[in-house]
Nucleic acid binder design. Structure first.
Length: 432
RNA sequence: UCCCCAGUAGCUCAAUCGGCAGAGCGGGUGGCUGUUAACCACUAGGUUCGCGGUUCAAAUCCGUGCUGGGGAGCCA
C-alpha cells in the first residue's frame, strides 16, 4: 500500500514511494524534464517528470495539466537542493482528477477589487492560507487561555430583541411577526451567565449596520467577550494583558513559517510581554496635544488616527482607561474619584492597528442603572431581564470584547482587515 | 452620509498637446535534460464602464449616471 501523505510531512518520507493529492500551482516544461508545483493545503512541493523518451506517456498527461487542476501523483521523495523546500517528488504515476479550464487568477499581480470578486478562489493562495491558519491558531489560543483560567464558554444568541447600545445601528429582521435584531455584542447575556458561573466568555459573530468604510471595519465580525463576576476594572485589564501575550506567544511558537510567508517582522511581536502600559484618557489627551498632530477637543472620543499617534510611543498594546462618561455606553460604572469618568478600558494594538479591546466595569447598582437607561433614552421595558441581574444578588463585575479580525490583522500585519476572515462582509460587498 | 482617486485585452498597466489601440502576464502552437512568477519564437485576443455634449477628429475635454478603491465619522 502506497501511503497518501501530506506535503507538510514529506521530509520524513525521504527516499520512500508515496502518493500526494492536491492541485497544480504552476507547471514548467524544459523539454525532457517537466516540473509541477503542487499544493495540498499543508504545503507546496515540486514534482518532476523526467525521461529520455520524447514520447514518454506521462509527458502527454502532463501536457493536459492546467493551473488549479487537481491530481493524484505517486513517486519517490528525494532531497534536492534545487527544489524549493529542499525536497521534491520524482513522479512515476500521474492521475488527473479534474482538468481546470483557464483559471481567473494568474500568477502575476492583481488588484484587490478583482481578488475580492474571486475571494472563493483567492483563498487558495499561499498568503491567504497562511492567514487562515494563523486565524485558526489565534482562536484556538484564545479559547485555550480562557478555558485554562476557568472561564466557561456560554454562547450568546445572535437574534436578539433589544439593543445593547442604542446608538449603534442594528440589522433588523423579522421574527415571526416581531422585530428582531442581529446581535452587536454578547455582553448583556454574558453578564447573566457570569452571575450563574462566575467566569464566562462568549465567542461568536456580531453585526454592525454602520456604513463604515475603512481598513479597520467589517460589517460582520467575531468577538470574544469575557465577563467576570466580582472583578473590577484592573482585574480585567490584567486578564487582557495575559490573554494577548498568550495569543501572540502561540502564533510565534507554532506559526513561524506562516509569518515568514506573510513577511511579517516578528521582532515587534517578541516584545508583547506583560505588563503593558496603562494611561488614562487625560494622559492620552496630553500626549496627543504634545504631539501637535491632532486637534481633537478634550472630552471627545479619540479617533483612529489619534489612537495611532498615542500608541506610537509604546512598543506594546496600550491600555487607555477612564474615558469621559458622556462618550461611553450606559452600563459603565462611574469612577468614584471622578464621576464624570467611567471605569473603562480601550486596548490599542501597536503598529497603528487601533482598538482591539474595549471593556469596562459594569454598573451593579439597580437605581443607578435605571437612571442611566432613562438618560440614554432606552426602553426600560426591554431591559427588565437585564435589571433583574441587579435585583438578585448584584455584584461588581467587569468584562471586555476582543475583536478577532483586528487581532488577526495586527499579528499578521495585514494592510486591510478584509484579509483576516475567509469571507469579509463589508459595505456594499456581500458576494461571494 | 461626506471628501479624494480610478475605470483601456481575461489580469496588471501604458498611450506626449485631442491626431493609426500598445506592452507584459495569462491563453494557443512549436522549441529546450534542472526549472524556481523559467526561458526563446510565433499567434489569437478591444463596445477604451454607460448615456449625452464639445470638436474635422475623443481613451484623452465637459456634464451625468454606475462600479470600484482610499479616507473621515462610528466602533472591536
Amino acid at each position: 500500500m502506497i501511503p497518501w501523505i501530506s506535503i507538510r510531512d514529506a521530509a520524513a518520507y525521504a527516499g520512500r514511494h508515496v502518493e500526494l493529492r492536491g492541485w497544480i500551482i504552476n507547471q514548467r516544461d524544459s523539454g525532457r524534464i517537466k516540473f509541477m508545483l503542487i499544493r495540498d493545503g499543508s504545503g507546496t512541493m515540486q514534482a518532476t517528470i523526467w525521461s529520455k523518451d520524447p514520447d514518454f506517456p506521462l509527458f502527454q498527461t502532463f501536457a493536459r495539466l492546467t493551473q488549479e487542476s487537481s491530481l493524484k501523483v505517486r513517486g519517490t521523495i528525494q532531497a534536492d537542493p534545487r527544489a524549493p523546500g529542499g525536497f521534491e517528488l520524482q513522479v512515476d504515476h500521474l492521475e488527473p482528477v479534474h482538468i481546470a479550464p483557464e483559471y481567473p487568477i494568474a500568477r502575476k499581480s492583481h488588484g484587490t477589487a478583482f481578488l475580492m470578486k474571486h475571494r472563493h478562489l483567492w483563498l487558495r493562495s499561499q498568503r491567504q492560507t497562511a492567514i487562515l491558519r494563523i486565524r485558526a491558531a489565534i482562536i484556538r489560543a484564545i479559547r485555550d487561555f480562557m478555558d485554562s483560567r476557568g472561564f466557561v464558554l456560554t454562547d450568546a444568541p445572535i437574534l436578539t430583541g433589544n439593543a445593547a447600545e442604542g446608538t449603534t445601528t442594528l440589522f433588523e429582521t423579522k421574527y415571526f411577526g416581531e422585530s428582531a435584531y442581529l446581535s452587536q455584542s454578547g455582553q448583556l447575556y454574558a453578564e447573566a451567565t457570569a452571575m450563574a458561573l462566575g467566569k464566562v466568555y462568549t465567542f461568536g459573530p456580531t453585526f454592525r449596520a454602520e456604513k463604515s468604510k475603512t481598513r479597520r471595519h467589517l460589517i460582520e465580525f467575531w468577538m470574544m467577550e469575557p465577563e467576570w463576576a466580582f472583578a473590577e476594572l484592573s482585574d480585567v485589564i490584567d486578564l487582557s494583558e495575559h490573554l494577548l501575550a498568550a495569543v501572540v506567544a502561540r502564533v510565534l511558537d507554532k506559526h513561524r513559517e506562516d509569518l515568514k510567508i506573510l513577511e511579517r517582522d516578528t521582532a515587534p511581536l517578541e516584545k508583547i510581554v506583560p505588563p503593558f502600559p496603562r494611561i488614562t484618557y487625560d494622559e492620552a489627551f496630553e500626549l496627543l496635544k504634545a504631539s501637535g498632530e491632532s486637534d481633537t477637543p478634550y472630552g471627545e472620543d479619540l479617533g483612529g488616527t489619534d489612537e495611532t499617534i498615542v500608541s506610537k510611543s509604546f512598543d506594546r498594546p496600550l491600555a487607555i482607561t477612564h474615558y469621559p462618561a458622556d462618550i461611553k455606553a450606559f452600563y459603565m460604572q462611574p469612577d468614584a474619584a471622578d464621576p464624570k469618568k467611567v471605569l473603562c478600558v480601550d486596548v490599542i494594538a501597536p503598529e497603528g492597528y487601533g482598538e482591539i479591546i474595549g471593556g469596562s466595569q459594569r454598573i451593579h447598582d439597580l437605581e443607578l442603572l435605571e437612571q442611566k437607561i432613562r438618560e440614554h433614552g432606552l426602553s426600560e421595558e426591554v431591559f427588565q431581564w437585564y435589571l433583574d441581574l441587579r435585583r438578585f444578588g448584584s455584584v461588581p463585575h467587569s468584562g471586555f470584547g476582543l475583536g478577532i479580525e483586528r487581532t488577526v490583522a495586527w499579528i499578521c500585519k495585514l494592510p486591510h482587515i478584509r484579509e483576516s476572515i475567509p469571507f469579509p462582509r463589508m459595505l456594499y460587498n456581500l458576494y461571494p
